[in-house]
Amino acid sequence: MSGVGTTQAIAPVGTPQTRARSRPPLRALLPWAAGPAWFVAALVTWRWPDADDFPDTTTLAGLFAGIGVALLSAAALRRLSARAPWMIALGLGFAAWELVQAKLLLLPRPFFGTPQDLLDVFLTDWKRLGDSLLHSLGLLVVGYTAGSILGIATGVGLGRSQRFRYWALPIVRLIGPLPPVSLLPLAMVLIPSNWLASEALMALGSGFPVTILTWSGVAAVDPAYYDVARTMGARDRFLVLRVALPAAMPQIFVGLFMGLGMSFVMLVIAEMLGVKSGLGFYMQWAQGWAAYPNMYAALLVMSLMCTGLITILFKVRDRILGWQKDGLKW
């Protein structure tokens, strides 16, 4: 908008009007181009003969066409303004991928698959993929939750109690910075269950950043906040739960975010080395069989899982930290 204003101020009198008049129609047409971009992808997939015997070519063409129809209806309902450029790029991208690999076979197989291969994995192996996803989620949620609760409790203790700090800080400093992976061989021997060992290490990995950031948040609370509550007769319980914790919440969320990243790392390592299920195990298995499309599919699922979990974390953050003036939008 400001760009238009600047042009008007500098350019000669005639041009801005013509530009202003010709520009909106072009932008208004953009949503209508998203559907056709996917039709192009469908047409290339359907009519251009495959370079080899690939599965599900017709299904894929149908899928592309279906998305094209959905996008056209979205444009008709005026629901597709901000996302239109991305949708066009995605449609054309799929068309190009289809062209390069399925039709012309320009990249070495089997490392580079076709869109058909990927679709085939989801159509034939969805059950095992879904099962792996559930196992990974289960492992992650338990370890991460345990680590976060432990981290917040330890952080508050470090920030509020001199005696707790005296005993706990050396332990935190000794164990915290150690990459949890390095404890994996030992944990697998000491703890009888692989599952429990992985959970313990994941809790350790995610708990450390949460501990440090909770501590720093609690230590930075304005002492006047405590004075205000104390003059009104507040006891320790109120000071911790209703003053220190909410005041430290912005920092705690940074710790929770870092801890979540840490637990993703621990998840994959645990599943590749010990736990016999989950997406990491699936990938390991796919590599063993040189089933690269399966690996891509598992990667896609894992990426969606991770970004989904971070989105949930940020949604919770936005709700709890609605009082902050500004904040990063995920």
């Binding site: 304005d222 906040y225 004075d227 205000v228 104390r230 003059t231 005041a247 930290l321 009082w323």
Partner: peptide, 19 residues
């Protein structure tokens, strides 16, 4: 401290997370 003796400081010291 006791609730019948209330202090008001130079800064409002309102809790930013409370309305």
């Amino acid at each position: 401290p006791g609730p019948d003796r209330i202090v008001m400081f130079q800064d409002p010291t309102l809790y930013p997370w409370r309305t």
